[in-house]
Amino acid sequence: MTLFGYRVPMMASLLVWCVLWEIVGRLDLMFILPPFSDVLAAAVDLVQLPSWQSATVTTLRAFLIGMLLAIAVGIPLGMLMGRVKIADDLLGMWVNIFSSAPLSAIVPVLMILFGFGENTIIAAVFLFAIWIIVLDTRAGVRHISPSLIEMARSYGASRPALYGKIIVWAALPEILAGIRLGLIRGVKGVVIGQLLVAIVGYGALFETFSRNFRMSQFWALTIILFAFALVVSALIERAEAKVEFYAGVR
C-alpha cells in the first residue's frame, strides 16, 4: 500500500495492531488482554528465567529431532512415490489422508506408546511435519522434465548419479517448499503435543501461566512462539529464493 506517496510495507500494519492492543489493554476491558507493553516487559523477564531457558532447550531439541526425522524419512519416501508407480498407488492414499487428518486426535495414542515425555513430542512433530514433505517432494519429482532424465541416461549416468545429480536438484524448489510447510506444521505439532502432555517444555509453562492467570507471561510466551514460527519460515523462504531462479526454467 502507498500512503502519501511512500510505499508502506505490508507487515507494517502489524504495528497498528500492536498499538491497538496497547490501547485496548490500557482500557482494562478484558483481564485476559493486558497492555502490549506489559507483555513485552514480561517477555524480557521471561527469557531470563531458568525455567523458560530449560523449557526452550527441551522444546527446541524435540522440534529439531522430530523435523530431522521427518525430513530424513519424508524426502526419500516422496522420491519413491514420485518415481515408482506402485509405491505411489499404495501409499498415496494414506499420505493424502494423513496430511489433512486431525492429527491432534492421535497425540493421546502417542502418549501411551511413547510415554509422557519428550519422545511423545518428537513423535508429534514427526507426524505433523512428514506428510506435506512427502507430498511436495513427490510433486517436485513428478515435475521434472522427462528429457532431463533421458539426458542423464543418454550420457550414461548411474542410478545414484541420476538421483544425486539430477533428481534431487531438479526437485529442490518443491522439496524446500515442502520442508518450509513441514516446519510450520512441526511448530504446530510441538505446541499441540506439549499442550496435551502438559508437563514438558512450553506446555508446562502455558499450563502454569494460564492456571495462575499470569496473562502477561502467557502472551509473552505466545509471542515468542509466534516469532519463532515466523523466523523459521522466513529463513527457509530465503533458501527457497536462492533456488527459485531455476524453478521457472527447468
Binding site: M10, M11, V187, L195, F206, S210, L221, F226
Partner: peptide
C-alpha cells in the same frame, strides 16, 4: 480493496504460520 489487504492480511499470515492452538486454553477463560 488495498487498505483492507494492508491492514488484515499480515494478521492472518501470522495466524496461519503460528501455532494458534496455544489460544485454545485462553478461550475457556472467557
Amino acid at each position: 480493496w488495498r487498505p483492507g489487504e494492508w491492514l488484515l492480511i499480515p494478521v492472518f499470515i501470522v495466524l496461519q504460520a503460528a501455532p494458534v492452538a496455544a489460544f485454545i486454553p485462553l478461550v475457556t477463560f472467557i
